[in-house]
Every structure is written in C-alpha cells, then in structure tokens.
Write a protein that binds this DNA or RNA. Structure first.
Lengths: 341, 341
DNA sequence: TTGTAAGCGTTATCAT
DNA sequence: ATGATAACGCTTACAA
C-alpha cells in the first residue's frame, strides 16, 4: 500500500536516486540500459511521483484556479466545459471556486488560490466587484490572470469577451428593422460591464435610427433571480405602458420570465409584444414561442481563456515577454418565433 | 514580490523558525508576548504559508477531487453547487474533472487525482463504467471515496443516491391512478444503475397494478443526446403504437424532446398522450405544457456527499474507524400540466 | 519558553 | 554515465 518513491526504485536496482530521477525524465546523460531498467522497475512498482514534492521543488502546480459567479447557470457551465477540456488537453488541473456574486468571497478566493500556488487564474468578476486590488495582487505575484465575460477594463491582463455593446446594438437594430417602434429594455444592474454595454448598445441603436430614448422604458433586473425579475417587471411594464411593442432583455432567463408573464396575461407574442433575449440557452429553443436571442459562445470563451492563460503561464515560466490579448468572440442573432411577425 | 516565508519573519524578529511556526499555529508553549509579536509581523509582512511545503510535510492537501460525467447539465451543476458550498464551508478546495461518460478517461482521472494527493474523491460513474478496479485502487490507498448519483453497488464505500426504483414506481403508479392505461417508457442505456432502476420501478408499478408488461413499449435513449433521443423515439413510437396514452421518460431532457415532437405533430398533451419526466430541471417549468416530473435534489446530493467525504477524510486521518453510509435522499412528484387531465 | 535539527520526496548542481 | 549533496518551505521530536 505504501507509495513507491524514487528511493525504493533506487534501492531495488542498487543505483542512486539521482540516476533514477534522471532516467525517468529522459535525461540524455543516462545510458540506454539503465534507463530502460529504471522505466521497467518504475512500472512494476507502480511509481507515481509525489506531486507535493514536485510542486515544492519546481514551484509550479500544473493547476489553474477558476472563479465564476455561479455554476448553476447554462452560460457558465458551458464556459467551464471549455476550460476543463482545454486544461485536460494541456495537462492542467482545474480548481473551481464560486463567488456567488460576492466581492468579499471573490477576494478571499483569490488569496486562497495564490496560497495554493496555482499557476494561473481565470475569473469572471462578480457583479459587486468594483475594486480590483485583489486581481492586481495576483498579477504582481507573477501569477497570470485572464478575465472573461465579466471583466474590468482597467485591469492590465488578457481578456476574453464578446462585444456586448455591438451585440445589443445588433439586436435592437434588428427589432427596429422589423418595424417595432417602441422598444423597452430590461437591463441588469449598474456595475457589471456587460450590463452597461448592453444598455449602451440599446441606446445607440435607438439613436442611430432616430428613435428618442425614453428612460421610463428601462426596467432594472438586479435581484439576481433573473427569471422573476423578468416576470415582475413585465407585469409592471404592461401596467405602465400599453404601447410597447418589443422588449430587449439582458438575458434569456429574464426573457423567459417576460414570456411567462405575457403568456399568462394572454398577451400575444410577438403580435402584441416581441421578445428578444441574450445568450442562447438551450432552454430558449423549447419554450413557446421559441425565443429570438443572441448566441454567446460560452464553450469557446472558456476554451480560449484557458488556452491564453496556459500560454502566459508557459511564457512567464520561461521568462519570455508576455503580451496581453483582448479576444473578442463573435456573436450572432438567432432568429426564432418570439420576434417573427 | 517575493513571498514572505517563516524564515523572513524569524529573521525580522531575531527568533527561530520553530518559534514562529509554533506561534502561528497557536501552540501553548509559546509566550503570549512573542506570539503576538509574531502574529503582528506575519500580518505586516503579509505571510501566507506555502501550501506545497505544508502539503509535503503533512501529507494532506485540503483538496478533494470530483469527477462527473458532464458539467453542462442542470442536475450536475446543482450537485456541483452543493459540493462547492460544503467544501468552502469546511475549508477544502475542489478539483473538477469531466469524464464525458468515458471509462478510460475516468480511470485516468482517478490516477491523476491520486497522484495529486487529493484527500478524497467524489465521483458519479460514467455510463460506460462496469469495472471498478480504479475506484478500489483509490480506496486501497486510504483515499476516501464517496459515490453519488451513478453508483456501483459492489464498491465498498459511502454512497449518496436517490431511490430511483421507488421514484419511478411512484411516477408510474401516479399515471395509472390518473387513469392512463397504456404507458410507454423511454429508458436510458443498459449499464448505469439508475437507468436500470428506473426501468425496474416502471415494470414493478405495472405489475402491481395488473397491467401486462409490453417490451415493445420500451424505447432506448442511449445516444447521450437525450433531447434528440426523446424527439426521435417519440416519432417512432407514434408510428408504431396509436394507443399509447402516457410516456414515462428517464429524464426531463428526453421528456422535452418528446413534448417537442408531440407539439409539432399536433398531438395534444396530456389529452392524447401524457408525459412524465425525471429530475425537475428549471426548464420543465417553462416549456408548454409544463412538465410533470420527479424532483431530484441535486444540491442536497452534492452537499451530503461532500460532507460525508470530509468526515471520512477526518476520521481516516485520525485513525478512527470509518463506517460507510448509504444515504438515500427523498424524491417527490411535481405535478404539472403535462399529466393533468 | 525557545531553539536545533531531521525529514517530507523531489530536482539540480557539481563532482567523480 | 553516475552519484553525493544541497535545497525547496514547512512541521515536529527532542534538547536546552
């Protein structure tokens, strides 16, 4: 049961630990014969290097840390999937932490990851986060950080994002082109960049098409229970405005809440009110009416972010210069029933 | 930039490393004054113990490994959520690995986790897995293992499950009581225990209510794309049997595929065919008709599994006897539109 | 109450 | 081509 270590192999073969270590790692200054003897014996004794010892010695853990606001969320599980596959491929393990949208937790978790000596950190910021010293602390410790999805422009590191402003602009422009005249926006809270950007895209699209911006058509969905936010605000909106003919929602989940309310209130979608979502969750294909939305490539975001992070880890280790990249992944409009009239 | 270590604190205070170490860990044989001096200096120098060194020395990593078949899956993300919260609470980190339902990968990943010296392993077996030597290897190395959801009865370790057979029995009994006479079952593949158990529950319910079992009413959904399995088999079933009045599906996703086909084929749910799912995904509340299903407590499963694992880790470390537990979490029927007539 | 020194299992430097 | 030895940063008998 006791794990085999180098010294056991050395003893079994009557040679030194050094030789065993070198042979195992394929150093050129070991004779072919001893090398194969060592390999064979290692196999026979089922030798597995002790990662803790290796880590201590080499000061790297082949592990990356990931902090996301929530796991039970289709978008983040897609991202996670991309991260896990890329990490697997490149021989890294992944430690997952959930910030639950709490800044304090996020901060604590960064500290934890640094203490664990992860080789790099992938993070999508919590909605609360508006101070970035914890992120900068990691960067200063030479631990590469890549931000994805919910990023902060001010932090100097690589980022993988979509162009939220453009995507929102495209969505609203699409609605306008379809002939919708009075378009409400169900936005997210004020802090996260993507919430801001989607709002700005909405506004710009109106502007560019000479539709006056009306702040009473903006509904705030910031209770972190997007579905109910959508439902409740849809109800409110119907009471306040009887002439809105389309809604651009910050998230599919909000959109689904809206649809649920409108269905219950017997308001026809899209005849009376069209609904446009954001993210293209699987769910949006199964509700009725099927939801028009923006496809947000979660898997790709995760995969690219992990890939860039691991590149930077390698570069940092080899003392090569690293240049940060801002990768903007394309989004597309997925047209479905909820806007087709 | 350079991390503070014990020796730095010792040097700054003109005392020994041992004293610093002991002071930091609150040993009783250190004077109050030196203790507070050390604490203060550690704080000031922003000391963080090097986990690799601690791990090597203490031979524990305060990390648990989790292997799940897939992350992009509402049930597993709920489980993950439960695991992450419990681990966080008890001071453990979590390494996540995805087996993608592949036995070979699962085997490799267990080896990886053992090499990383995780303190314990949580695993839901892949559908392919029918050999358990890799699991037993971990157990033999004194690394506690807890199986959840997709378990193997033969493996001697703690398990957290639901009673799939009973849940399925309840579901089908419910349908029978509602007056449905010809009930089809869309089952999962042959290997995983939960697929077998749900099938057995279905069969037993028919038997107990004197409804003859008809194997032509069993449709196999084993392509790992449950949604399309449901869709395709629903189509097939409608062609083969014009008198089926209810379907019990192994999973909500399969059920949603079924609903999608029936809706397209203008077959009324539940008037012509009722549909019963399994898992209670969020999605099942937003499709139409809303899906009757079995609530499977994913969060609780994860939380309990992690809790038991950490208990066993602690017991093992203290050389206390550990007794394995089989925890069976209750499921409930969530009645919605798809079966109410 | 404090300190010395050994040891955890590797890797890497420098001799031989 | 091989090996002795130090070092990674920490914990812990044991000694003082």
């Amino acid at each position: 049961m006791n794990d085999t270590k180098l010294i056991d192999i050395a003893a079994a073969l009557g040679i030194s630990v050094t030789t065993v270590s070198k042979a195992l790692k394929g150093y050129s200054d070991i004779s072919k014969t001893t090398r194969s003897k060592v390999l064979e014996m290692a196999e026979e004794m089922n030798y597995r290097p002790n990662s803790n010892a290796v880590n201590l010695r080499t000061n790297e853990t082949k592990t990356i840390g990931v902090i996301i606001p929530a796991t039970v969320h289709h978008f983040f599980s897609s991202v996670l999937n991309g991260i896990l596959e890329e990490a697997e491929k490149r021989g890294y393990l992944v430690i997952i932490l959930q910030s639950s949208e709490k800044y304090e937790l996020e901060k604590k978790q960064i500290a934890l990851l640094l203490q664990k000596r992860v080789d790099g950190i992938l993070i999508s910021l919590s909605n609360e986060t508006d101070d970035f010293t914890h992120i900068n602390a990691a960067i200063k410790k030479n631990t590469p950080v890549v931000l994805f999805d919910k990023i902060a422009k001010m932090v100097d590191c690589s980022k993988v994002i979509i162009n939220d402003k453009k995507a929102a602009y495209d969505a609203v422009t699409y609605l306008i082109k379809k002939g919708y005249k009075k378009i409400a926006h169900f936005r997210g809270s004020l802090v996260p960049q993507n919430s801001i950007d989607r709002f700005l895209g909405y506004k710009k699209a109106l502007e560019d098409h000479n539709i006056p911006y009306d702040s009473s058509l903006i509904y705030m969905c910031d209770h972190n229970t997007d579905f109910e936010d959508g439902y409740g605000n849809a109800k409110l909106m119907v009471e306040q405005h009887n002439d809105v003919d389309a809604i651009f929602a910050i998230t599919d989940l909000v959109a689904i809440g809206i649809i649920k309310y409108l269905n219950e209130a017997q308001i026809k979608i899209p005849e009376q009110i069209a609904v446009f979502g954001f993210s293209n969750w699987f769910m949006s294909t199964v509700i009725s009416p099927k939801l028009t939305t923006i496809d947000q490539p979660g898997y790709d975001i995760g995969q690219r972010a992990a890939s860039i992070l691991i590149d930077e880890i390698t570069q940092t280790k080899e003392h090569l210069p690293v240049t940060h990249q801002i990768i903007e992944l394309p989004t597309t409009i997925i047209e479905r029933e909820s806007t087709i009239r």
